[in-house]
């Protein structure tokens, strides 16, 4: 059975006219690394909120259809029951950091404290999680004294430490430099290898192509297309609908018109592009 099962999900925020999500059907197996792409306003964050239970439990509004995680329906669950299974790292880490803690270490322990985890376990879990995301050196700093990229790592760590079955990440690398982005992607990749299921909203197409097992493209609250990264990220449907694609894809598409790209399939990554162009030489 799929870990996540979304059936005919339609949702409208309070006081809005058009639904933010329309008739979403989606099954996610355990261990998948799903990347959600789409323009701003396409419904990416709302889908994250729905998976995390904030829609509708926190935001209210009108909902129809159903979301199940590990066989439990969102509609029959309360938010505090739901968060045991699903963790969400917010798009803006500033909105997530509690403001109640003086140090990064305490901030990361906050969720565990609320879940009543014994003190000894808590300490070792926090230390382990910080090691995993490479922020052990920030343990004694104030969460508010950190750079955007560092805050994003703290936000991610404070969710990881909860060991959710489903990890939902809303643009977790948006404020990071390339090395930070690479590290976060490889941490997430390793987690999925050990069985964690991840849904990640991300604009960085090249990284998605390297690591994601499936890509879901949202437009105006509906799923426009989905499938393997190499297929979805090179499809004409995306360009026609104003999605950004990797420079490798767009240059090869143009080269193809001029007879300079001979392969049928367009590249997404550097390696695929180099291989394809080399063959022509």
């Amino acid at each position: 059975m799929a870990l996540v099962n979304i059936q005919n999900l339609t949702y409208k925020y309070p006081l809005t006219k058009t639904p933010a999500l329309q008739n979403i059907n989606l099954q996610i197996e355990q261990g998948e690394f799903i990347s959600v792409i789409g323009a701003n306003g396409a419904g990416k964050s709302t889908l994250c909120y729905a998976l995390a239970g904030f829609v509708p439990h926190f935001f209210k509004g009108e909902i129809s259809g159903e979301i199940e995680v590990d066989g439990v329906a969102s509609s029959k669950s309360t938010l505090d029951e739901w968060v045991v299974n699903v963790g969400l790292a917010f798009q803006n880490p500033f909105n997530q950091i509690s403001g109640a803690k003086y140090t990064v270490f305490e901030e990361i322990a906050f969720g565990l404290e609320n879940a009543g985890v014994p003190r000894e376990q808590m300490q070792s879990r926090v230390e382990e999680a910080m090691k995993l995301t490479g922020i052990s050196n920030l343990a004694d700093r104030s969460p508010y004294s950190l750079s955007g990229g560092q805050q994003q790592r703290v936000a991610l760590t404070s969710i990881l430490v909860m060991q959710p079955k489903l990890l939902v990440l809303d643009e977790p690398t948006s404020q990071m430099d390339p090395i930070g982005t690479r590290e976060v992607f490889s941490v997430i990749h390793n987690l999925t290898q050990s069985g964690m299921t991840v849904v990640m909203v991300e604009h960085k197409v090249e990284w998605i192509a390297h690591f994601a097992t499936r890509v879901i493209a949202l437009k105006d609250g509906s799923i426009l297309t989905e499938g393997k990264p190499g297929d979805v990220l090179t499809s004409d449907v995306l360009t026609k609908n104003g999605f950004g694609v990797s420079r490798y894809t767009s240059v090869a598409r143009e080269a193809k018109k001029q007879g300079l790209w001979k392969k049928e399939k367009l590249p997404v990554t550097l390696f695929e592009a180099a291989e394809g162009f080399n063959r022509n030489a």
């Binding site: 090249e206 420079r247 490798y248 240059v251 143009e254 550097l270 180099a274």
Partner: peptide, 24 residues
């Protein structure tokens, strides 16, 4: 300083293009 050159610059390098290219 952990900056990667632009995607097409890296591709150009890999293909041993003589000059540095920075755009399509």
């Amino acid at each position: 300083t952990y900056v990667d050159p632009p995607q097409l610059t890296r591709l150009g390098k890999l293909l041993n293009l003589k000059e540095t290219v920075i755009n399509q």
